[in-house]
Design a protein around this nucleic acid. Structure first.
Length: 414
RNA sequence: GCGAACGUAGCUCAGUUGGUUAGAGCGCCUGACUGUGACUCAGGAGGUCGGGGGUUCGAGACCCCUCGUUCGCCCCA
């Protein structure tokens, strides 16, 4: 085809798809508000530093997936691959430390240069929750609870599982990491190529390897539990207890590790097996060192991101939109009156469809196609008597209504 | 980035071992129905078979390249 195509990994959101996305966003926005998370937005691009520093130079996202470019002024810019870094930057930029806990909801497009697949695109969209400035386990519990509630409101909670793990505080994590590197280095020759690479970049990842040979080695790996200090253990236990208190089911997954450097303590994913290889629909965790990494005062934080495309696929069709009422003039003489009537009804709050041209048959057809609930017909007969014909398109019944009563009649129709 | 499959009208797909002007259903447009939709009937528009090159007397079918999609890996939302 020689017709123009969208850039690889990007997609047009036609009205039907857009409605599904909007539904996910609206449900999330409403639920987030109930928990006290107000919507905000940050720019779609930031200085490259913001992402590189927070996510870690060796992470996949930073090392090979960023959409980076140079501004006219020669500064390195990057289209945001995630929301967390931008919101944390905004937290610092705007001096919000006096507002803690700062609880935010955000949504918008993200960009990652990846091989597209179903549920994975180069421009995709996320909903995002962040709670900054709260070190308490209660924050972890609440943040996960918002996610669970949103999945519930979307009707997809039953097809999702909450996988959860702790990465411990920095001290525990460093100790464990060192132990892992030591253990795996001894088995380096038997590790898969991918895992040998992980040994340098993110040794925790090896625990999650799907390679059979790796699995054998992983079986005798040192246990994270032995390296978690008391604080980390207690903290995680408190989080789990809290979830149980709220009736939020979870699956303890000791091999769950996240790919970004900034995570500490609680790490979690709501996963589904309904979307092929792209199982995570909401994922996040605690990032107690991130704000400091960006140059702010040490400030704890926790949050998650959810993929709108994935959630929309799970949730299916959006609720039916408000059905319009079609205003149909019959003949030239009624055109002007119909136009004015349509305008007045719209100002009165009605959803009115009025075609630009066509005879009654065509306009009725169009009204039907647009799923109109009713049609208002005005011709010379009606005009002379100051009435119009109101036709219920579902029942196929119609009656005459005085023009001055039509607004009320429509409201009565529902 | 690696491996594999696929790519024919707006959509879902047929196209026999390569053989004349490439088909169907749905949708769209027009008419029967010059003041009434969802049903029916009759017409019509719409494709350089993703793109480029090659093999052949002849390619939608075979070969190569390229773009795109899908699946798996990697990784992630």
């Amino acid at each position: 085809m020689s017709s123009p195509q969208p850039v690889r990994g990007t997609h047009d959101l036609l009205p039907e798809d857009f409605a599904r996305h909007a539904h996910v966003q609206a449900v999330a926005r409403e639920m987030a508000a109930r928990f006290g998370y107000a919507e905000m937005a940050t720019p779609i691009f930031e200085f490259t530093e913001i992402f590189a520093r927070t996510m870690g130079e060796t992470s996949d996202v930073v090392s090979k997936e960023m959409y980076s470019f140079e501004s006219r002024g020669g500064e390195g810019m990057t289209l945001r691959p995630e929301y967390t870094a931008g919101i944390c930057r905004a937290f610092i930029s705007n001096g919000l430390q006096q507002n803690v806990p700062f609880k935010a909801f955000a949504t918008g497009p993200m960009f990652r240069y990846e091989r597209p697949q179903k549920g994975r695109q180069r421009q995709f969209h996320q909903i995002d929750i962040e709670c900054i400035g709260a070190a308490e386990a209660k924050a972890d519990i609440e943040v996960i609870a918002v996610g669970s509630a949103i999945l519930g409101a979307l009707g997809v909670l039953k097809s999702c599982t909450l996988e959860i793990n702790t990465l411990g505080d920095t001290e525990s994590r460093q100790a464990y990491r060192a132990a892992l590197v030591e253990y795996f280095s001894d088995h380096k020759n038997n590790l898969s190529e991918d895992s040998r690479d992980r040994l340098d970049r993110n040794p925790l990842r090896i625990l999650d390897s799907k390679d059979k040979g790796d699995r054998v080695i992983v079986e005798k790996v040192p246990l994270f539990n032995d390296y978690l200090n008391a604080f980390s253990t207690d903290f995680f236990a408190e989080v789990l207890e809290g979830l149980e208190r709220l009736g939020i089911g979870y699956h303890l997954n000791r091999r769950l590790v996240r790919g970004l450097d900034y995570y500490t303590h609680t790490a979690f994913e709501f996963v589904t097996d309904a979307l092929g290889a792209q199982g995570a629909v909401i994922a996040g965790g605690r990032y107690d060192g991130l704000i400091e990494t960006l140059g702010g005062k040490p400030t704890p934080g926790i949050g998650w991101a959810g993929g709108i495309e994935r959630l929309a696929m799970l949730a299916g069709d959006a609720p039916e939109a408000i059905r319009p009422v079609a205003v149909i003039p019959v003949g030239e003489a009624a055109e002007a009156v119909a136009e004015k009537l349509a305008h007045d009804l719209r100002l009165d709050g009605q959803v009115i469809e009025m075609a630009f041209k066509g005879n009654v048959g065509k306009r009725m057809k169009r009204a039907n196609k647009l799923n109109a609930a009713a049609a208002i017909l005005i011709g010379e007969d009606e005009l002379a008597r100051g009435v119009c014909t109101l036709r219920d398109l579902d029942k196929g019944e119609q009656s005459e209504v005085p023009l001055e009563n039509i607004a009320a009649a429509l409201k009565a129709l529902g």
